[in-house]
Amino acid sequence: MSDLATALDGASFDGLVKVEELHAQGMITLRGDFGDPGFVTAVTGVAEVSMPGQRGAIVDGRRGLLWMSPDELLLLCTYAEAPILAAKLDAALAGQHCLVANVSDARACFTLNGAYTREVLAKLAPVDMSRDSFGPGEVRRTRLAQVAAAFWLTSDDGAQIVCFRSVAEYVFNLLKAASAPGSEVDFL
């Protein structure tokens, strides 16, 4: 297979937190009726991850299901298996009113790692990042400064961010600025 060209070629930055562009994250957008057991069984069967509740993020190793809206899920997998899983989902959901789209190349992903992860996100998004109100297992679709993005905590001091590929450089620069050494707020 030829080399994958991600938006920023795996750029990284070491500041308050370590910001890294993920090399290749497989992502499949799924839309359908969550109230329909046929849809839920087909999706959880192919994904091998259980169905998340409202705003839930269930990530189990390389696979994950994120609750994006009352009728939309994002399935995380490896880049290589995304087309295979999308085809399996198409087959499993044949005849149902739903959408399966492999969006791996349409998005960019970043990881944040470090004790200031919550603070870096809190600088950019209108989200209460305190431990009491946001923790691992929850996904938040919001904005980072001026562009739409979603993030979830992968551990207590790590997070993953998804944004559109076209704004990857903007988001990377934002994250760099927000995690510039010396810019600690030490509130969260």
């Binding site: 409202q54 705003r55 809206s69 009352p70 209108p126 679709r141 904005r143």
Partner: peptide, 12 residues
């Protein structure tokens, strides 16, 4: 009412 988020004006 759909995702339960207390959204601030700039998110809307």
């Amino acid at each position: 009412p759909y995702c339960g988020v207390k959204a601030e004006e700039t998110e809307l």
